[in-house]
Design a protein around this nucleic acid. Structure first.
Lengths: 351, 351
DNA sequence: ACAGAGTCGGAAACTGTTTCTGAAACAGAT
DNA sequence: ATCTGTTTCAGAAACAGTTTCCGACTCTGT
């Protein structure tokens, strides 16, 4: 377990210099800084207070400290993380990278300066490259709720493919043939899963994917409203909508109520839920649900155990399952207009 | 700025002993521990790393780490806190008292052991006495979103009296005379404010408070449903409902939709919102809104500034205003039917 | 060429924590 | 009563990181 002094003596510099490098003090020569940093990375320095090593991990947000736009996702995640930290007795710090990181320090420096042993990362559209850089530096890190192709990036996420497929098949089973898909307009792995599930389910049922039924929009209430308006005003309107994020689903519901469209009689809606907003509306939303708390718990567990067992360059590419919950917003397809009418069963589907 | 060694030499003990006391090691005599603790308190010891003093504050939860039951209140609060910490460059740690505090250490010890300079406290029904004890010990602390009579306890909260009164007066102005009040069944200052506002507004309008119109229940969706059912089935039913917390308000809305009661034609609803759930339903909920983010920001600002200016025993008893936002769930009172019973219009849909 | 300013970094001083060790107290047996 | 072994308590020293002070070196302007 290398200390500042150990590194210093190896490099034939003084402990003061190593400390200065770690704390990003300006008055150290660039070449020296590089050398020290390289050795620190190589030997795997861990921060200490006095003689005790710090057991602190961080939850780091890229820009804004904490986003509340996702509703109860963040508190559920935090709650899970805190529980996951319990076992190895770690503490949790909240970090905002934009706020605290100086542009001319490395991420490793930044985290060590904050006395952090490992970091849980939240990924938004803006910071995928940031996350890749952190992973390259080799600092213990895990991304929660996003997928990465880069092998260096550890992540844990929920795979929504099976549940999403279940969802679409549920709709098909209820006789729906015109099923709309409301996607996020920024491609990410979660939404790719859902798209794939949609395509596959339709294909296996012998249905064609109609591009007119697929929309890509931001994740927001108003996007959901737009989806509903568009999909109901088609020549051959949708009889069901699968909205792949919570806000869009809520927007669809709200607008349907506003326009007096009876859900699920006239239109079925399936959403995705991170927490429990699906229970906030009536009828309760049929939805693909992912458990943010267990994501947090597993991430924290993996990270602390990795740190404790100080494995070098460990890998975590875990997906946990989402589930599909049938509630009140899905029902048999409305009997289509006469000419194709004989196929619809009209039987009220009991889940 | 007293150090461990300074305290030690004053007390004629070794630094090791002081350190042991701070870290709650078992092998130190009870009398010695008391003496050290007293002196630490007296001199206002601050934790350091090396020669630098730590600039870390904590957000401490009593039992469960983070509650997600309040929806987006917590993330909004956190977001505000992080912004409030920015100015004085403090870091934030999350602490769970139940998890981390040993029963036989004082709170001051606990916080110092965690390297904390000050603490923001969340108050739930279970831990008011805990909070009073912390305040008595004199450790820099501030409670967010609750009120305390004890003069030693610092807090910052939103006073919902004016907005609540505005809300009830708004209903009265719309011609409502039968206004129901759905209260939380655990008395706390927030709900007391709302109760008082309700009473006062009614009184000033020359209306009597009908005990049949006041219910006290837990804060939950099902409680809201119960409220709606009860209030619409009275002999002289309510024409408006004021639900003093977000979940209850949502429950009322959901049940109204379920039963086909047209809001706001047949029934007006006013809620309370911590974040933005009021926009998740249709029609958008008319609500008293408190801004959790600014509570967090102000709390963090006060705490960090207090610490930086090391005032001894500072006091903060601040209330910030809530606001009243008129949206789509309030409208003129239904024309009091000539002979009651023709009330249900059955018309669905567009306002 | 020389003076002054700026850069870089080491020694030392000062944090807090832990390990090692020893003194004192206590319990039990002879 | 004395001896022995154990437990309790706490100090000395070693060791962790950071900062202050100061000296050496470099660079620039005159």
């Amino acid at each position: 377990m290398p200390s500042v002094r150990a590194i210093a003596s190896q490099l034939k510099v003084s402990p003061a210099t190593v400390s200065r490098v770690l704390n990003n003090h300006p008055d150290v020569d660039e070449a020296t800084r590089e050398r020290v940093l390289a050795r620190i990375n190589e030997l795997g320095y861990v921060p200490r207070i006095g003689r005790r090593i710090t057991n602190v991990i961080a939850l780091a947000y890229p820009d804004e400290p904490v986003r509340s736009e996702y509703g109860a996702f963040e508190p559920a995640l935090l709650s899970g993380i805190m529980r996951g930290l319990e076992e190895q007795q770690f503490d949790l710090k909240l970090l905002s990278i934009r706020r605290d990181k100086s542009p001319d320090e490395t991420f490793t420096q930044f985290f060590l300066r904050k006395g952090i042993r490992g970091v849980i990362l939240r990924c938004f559209r803006t910071n995928r490259s940031t996350i890749c850089r952190i992973a390259e530096e080799g600092f213990p890190a895990i991304v929660v709720a996003s997928e990465f192709d880069e092998p260096a990036v550890n992540f844990i996420r929920a795979d929504s493919y099976p549940s999403s497929r279940q969802a679409v098949e549920h709709l098909i089973g209820l006789g729906h043939k015109r099923i709309a898909l409301a996607m996020h307009n920024v491609p990410d792995s979660d939404h790719a899963d859902r798209r794939r599930a949609y395509d596959d389910a339709l294909f296996c049922a012998g249905l064609k994917v109609d591009p007119a039924l697929v929309m890509e929009l931001p994740a927001s209430l108003s996007a959901g409203e737009q989806v509903l308006d568009t999909m109901t005003s088609l020549d051959d309107p949708a009889t069901a909508i699968f909205a792949t994020n919570p806000m869009t689903a809520l927007g669809v519901m709200r607008r349907a109520q506003e326009r007096g469209i009876d859900v699920p009689r006239q239109l079925s809606v399936v959403g995705v839920d991170d927490s429990d907003v699906r229970t906030h509306v009536w009828p309760r939303l049929t939805a693909v649900t992912q458990n943010a708390a267990s994501l947090g718990l597993e991430a924290a567990n993996w990270l602390t155990q990795t740190i404790a067992s100080n494995a070098s360059r460990p890998s975590c590419r875990r997906t946990i399952a989402t589930s599909f919950e049938i509630n009140g917003t899905t029902g048999p397809a409305a009997v289509p207009s006469r000419e194709r009418g004989s196929r619809a069963t009209g039987r009220r589907g009991r889940p």
